[in-house]
């Protein structure tokens, strides 16, 4: 009875997900094994060319480079986000929800608008240059917009709240007396952090970092707007294959790789999480 009712309740939503997520994604996977038509469209002949192309030096290089950029973004966001979450947790209890809310708030405002804000800040006649001029440091600043640095800053900005949120939960659950006990036993602040705090909160940090990496590597908007079209990320490539180059099968193959990387990272993150709980048992 309960299970029948359950099936009845789940059916519409699961059907929706099956029809509009599973089937389309399977279709994209399938597309990766066909040839492109000369001007776009699909020539229904089986081929492994597209997958091979993903690993050719040109595209493989773009993949590696975007992994490098996304890795840097994830690293910076992880460090800054963890520090921020740590700082929030060490404020008095009644302040924490407010601070967390404020930290996450920008995440909910329009992504494009937040990216645009960086154009206003960074461009050659932008606010940072204006400020420098006002301080009499005219000409001291290098080109900022349309650089890799701008892309990284924009991505960190976009996804930082995510890490803060992911790190806050485990940090706030951390019993305070644990840290105090460690100190009483003679552990230095850093030892306490390294041996107790970090292992216990690593899963949250890993979730945050993985998501930032995946979101960054698949992003095409920020490289386009803040990179001046000079930086190729996996997301940019996929976007181009579908909307400008008309090479859907290759775009599909790239998307497949993106999914595979994401799955690998999720598995790795689960592994870290399990090690984290192992640490808890030891502690």
């Amino acid at each position: 009875m309960r299970d029948r009712g359950s099936a009845f309740l789940m059916a519409p939503a699961l059907a929706w997900l099956a029809g509009l997520m599973v089937v389309p994604c399977a279709l994209v996977l399938a597309l990766a094994f066909f040839r492109r038509g000369l001007y776009g469209g699909i020539d229904w002949t089986f081929t492994l060319e597209n997958l091979a192309l993903v690993f050719d030096p040109l595209y493989g290089g773009i993949l590696l480079n975007s992994a490098r950029i996304a890795g840097l973004v994830a690293l910076i966001a992880a460090v800054a986000g963890y520090a921020a979450a740590f700082a929030i947790v060490s404020r008095p209890r009644h302040w924490q929800p407010v601070l967390l809310f404020l930290a996450v708030l920008p995440f909910w405002s329009n992504y494009l608008i937040r990216t645009y804000a960086w154009i206003v800040l960074l461009n050659r006649e932008g606010l940072i240059v204006q400020a420098a001029r006002w301080l009499g440091r005219d000409g001291a600043l290098p080109q900022m917009l349309y650089t890799e640095g701008a892309v990284i800053a924009g991505l960190v900005y976009a996804y930082l709240p995510f890490v803060i949120l992911a790190c806050y939960a485990p940090l706030s659950r951390l019993p305070r007396d644990l840290a105090e006990a460690s100190r009483d036993l003679g552990g230095s602040g850093f030892t306490t952090f390294r041996r107790i705090t970090l292992p216990l909160t690593l899963p949250g940090l890993a979730v945050g970092a993985v998501f930032v990496f995946v979101l960054s590597v698949g992003n095409f908007v920020t490289p386009a707007l803040l990179g001046g079209g000079q930086f190729q990320m996996v997301g940019t490539l996929v976007y181009a294959q579908f909307l400008t180059a008309g090479d859907w099968p290759f775009g599909a193959a790239l998307a497949m790789v993106l999914m595979a990387v994401m799955m690998l990272l999720l598995v790795a993150q689960t592994w870290v999480a399990e090690r984290g709980t192992g640490g808890r048992r030891d502690a």
Binding site: N123, R124, E125, Q143, L145, Y146, G228, G229, Q230
Partner: peptide, 21 residues
């Protein structure tokens, strides 16, 4: 040539010129 560029731009290059960017 790319190493000397500000950006690739198909849509707002004239605005960049006017602003002096």
């Amino acid at each position: 040539a790319k190493r000397t560029l500000l950006a690739y731009d198909d849509t707002t290059f004239y605005a960049k010129l006017v602003s002096g960017e």
